[in-house]
Simulated assay, not measured.
Amino acid sequence: MDAIFKALNDPARRALLDSLRQSDGQTLTDLSEQLEMTRFGVMKHLKVLEDAQLIVTRKAGRFKHHYLNALPLQEVMDRWIHPFLQPQAQALSRLKATLEGQTMTKPDFMMATFINCSHDALWEALTKGDLIAQYHFACETVTGDMQKNGDTVAYLFPHGAPMLSNRVISITPKTRIEMAFLPSWGGDETPSRCVYLLEPTSTGMKLTVEHFDLPAAQTGVAEGWARFASGLKTWLETGQTHRFAPEKSA
């Protein structure tokens, strides 16, 4: 966490995070135009933020896009602030509809987390419905597995109503899953597309989530991913179920 506090202890880096919060996926050119410093200076600040895992990057063609990664900040909140302030939902995704055959460019939302687990354990936790049900923040019943193209996993609310389904578009075992994201909440059931990327590290696993073509009327997707990833990480690292459910309104 020292790297997080170091990264936040500079107004220029905080300004970059604020800019990405307002408009995710910006390039170096986009961000450089907003600060009174050289491109090299902005690059150095972005490197500090990336080292602290507060941003993640993705190349699309010759452009490198930068995304706010709020999960490390959420973990700081959970450790020190949540018990006192009951933090509220934040981060809404900007959304737009997609078709399965559409070529993906840059994601509308991107998040990464590091988990102290084996490669096999992470893969099974992401692909087996009965395991997803152990840590999902809203659904204790999840049916189906993701093993091949066309497989579908369905998420059900406790009262039995559908929340979401994911249908596999393409799958590379233990490396990548591309899915159609089919929501059933909030009145807008426009499909979009999401991707899991699994990468072994020297101390565990890195999981990156990319979400493409999110429709604007759907809300809470970014926070939902943060709650999903927090539950997954807790379950894999401790063996204990903890559902990071949204706070109930007073």
Rank of each mutant, 00 (worst) to 15 (best):
Q26H: 05
M111T: 06
L68C: 00
A12E: 05
C139S: 14
E223Q: 07
D130A: 01
Q88R: 09
N166Y: 09
H119T: 01
F244C: 08
V209W: 08
T219L: 15
A161C: 02
A133I: 02
T201P: 10
A112R: 10
K6F: 11
T234W: 05
K59F: 09
N166K: 03
E189S: 15
T141H: 12
Q34C: 11
K6R: 13
K106E: 06
H211D: 11
P11M: 08
K96A: 08
A3M: 14
S249G: 13
T57L: 08
K6G: 10
S23L: 13
T203N: 14
L164I: 00
I55M: 06
M77N: 11
T152L: 04
W123P: 00
Q90K: 09
E199D: 06
L99H: 15
F181T: 06
V209M: 14
E199N: 07
Q147Y: 10
H119G: 00
D24E: 11
E140R: 15
R62H: 04
A133F: 01
K106D: 08
K6Q: 13
I169H: 05
E36F: 09
W235N: 07
I4D: 07
E33L: 14
L126V: 02
T127D: 01
M179R: 02
V209N: 05
K148S: 03
D24P: 04
H159N: 15
G41H: 08
K233T: 15
R243K: 13
T208Q: 10
Y67T: 07
Q90W: 10
S192W: 02
S170M: 04
A60E: 13
M179Q: 12
E189R: 06
I81C: 10
H82N: 14
T234K: 11
T175Q: 15
A245H: 10
G187T: 13
L99A: 12
M43Y: 07
T203C: 02
D78K: 11
K248N: 06
V153C: 01
K106L: 06
R176E: 09
T27D: 13
F40M: 13
T219K: 15
M110V: 05
